[in-house]
Design a protein around this nucleic acid. Sequence first.
DNA 1: ATTATATAAAACCATTTGGTTTCATGTCAA
DNA 2: TTGACATGAAACCAAATGGTTTTATATAAT
Lengths: 118, 118
Amino acid sequence: MSASAQKHDVFQAIADPTRREVLKLLAEKELPISEITSHFSISRTAIAKHLQVLSEAELVRGRKQGREKIYQLQLEPLKELKQFYDQFWTNRLSVLKHIMENPGESSLRVIESEKSQD
Amino acid sequence: MSASAQKHDVFQAIADPTRREVLKLLAEKELPISEITSHFSISRTAIAKHLQVLSEAELVRGRKQGREKIYQLQLEPLKELKQFYDQFWTNRLSVLKHIMENPGESSLRVIESEKSQD
DNA sequence: ATTATATAAAACCATTTGGTTTCATGTCAA
DNA sequence: TTGACATGAAACCAAATGGTTTTATATAAT
């Protein structure tokens, strides 16, 4: 169910630092474009475009209320990110190798918290 | 420690699907450029450039051996990805809200496996 | 009815990106 | 020492990206 090849996927969407910031903002609470803009030093139009990209990736959803458009964070697509991460940082050979080659690093903690997955 | 603002960070590096594929390949085992190239339909030069980007993001490391350059996956930077993910998908208000608004979804499992973090 | 607000849409622009092709260089094998 | 192989480097190109400014439209507020 779902998926489909939209023009912008999650990976591209979060590639831009401004976009990541916007997401952080929206994690606190939903906001209208103008208010989001006030947190940055670029034009409202630029922010609106970023929101479009995020929207295509379904990381945000915008509903129009009165004259303003309020954007809301959508967490769902972030799971794809986790999947990607897990593909590497789970009980894989690459991880074991990594540990062997990087003694005394904080890797183990990460693995501990990950291995209760599937 | 580490960090520093390199030209390419992890987020940008993994934004490209080809680059993600390359990482997957290298997760199996280290490979020379030519061999990596053989898995794609684009030129060797193009792949070499992708490897440069990945290298700048420190997601791979290349050592020269004889006439070939062998690339190896580096898992470390992927942690930044996890951090980003956790920022949203951890016991945050946004997550609770998400669950309320999306009943009967697989969200809970994700949270279960995440909450043993810090 | 008029004005101010909030966004939408379009045109434009410089830079970056993801490719290519071509030429140069180092290394292995015969 | 002469090819063949693996990569490096440079020049070039079209399309995408991240911005801008300008113009239009809908909704509030006075």
